[in-house]
């Protein structure tokens, strides 16, 4: 059984530790990468961490005309093959949750890869609002 990424917004305190953990884990060049997770404020003392849902019928995969996106069955996440991507932004425009992203600094397209089986955001979340189990 593959593990599941679980989000419990009620426990989120908006500390943004997940963002930092994500950026530092995804260091493509010399600088930290763009975070793939966003704890967004939705009201007084209320946050919802938004990240890729690794959809069953993913719009990003369907939109990619060069097959740079595919389901990694083993680890249960949608993988972006950087060497294949020609940065057409179709997936960025198509994802209904806004979770395929442009990393302007590195000039690449990025998305959550669940840290290939050990998501840093969940490891560092102090309140267990994010868990991978």
């Amino acid at each position: 059984m593959t593990k599941r990424f679980m989000v419990r917004p009620a426990l989120c305190i908006g500390c943004r530790t997940c963002e930092l953990a994500c950026s530092l884990t995804h260091q493509e060049g010399k600088t930290p990468g763009r975070t793939r997770i966003y704890p967004l404020a939705v009201g007084k003392e209320k946050w919802v961490p938004v990240a890729c849902l690794q959809c069953d019928d993913p719009a990003c995969v369907k939109s990619c005309l060069v097959d740079a996106l595919r389901m990694n069955e083993e680890l249960g996440y949608i993988e972006l093959l950087q060497e294949r991507c020609i940065k057409c932004r179709a997936c960025v425009a198509a994802c209904p949750f806004g979770c395929s992203l442009i990393d302007e600094e590195q000039e690449i397209i990025v998305k959550c890869d669940l840290c290939e089986g050990n998501p840093a955001c969940a490891r560092f979340c102090p309140t267990k609002a994010l868990e991978y189990k």
């Binding site: 917004p9 806004g98 395929s100």
Partner: peptide, 26 residues
């Protein structure tokens, strides 16, 4: 899906989830 940009879709996702969350859980 193409009507709204990625930034606004993330914000929209958060708002939609807000309605589903049992905030008492906290």
């Amino acid at each position: 899906y193409f009507d709204v940009c990625d930034d606004c879709k993330r914000a929209g996702t958060a708002k939609n989830f807000k309605k589903l969350v049992h905030w008492e859980e906290k």
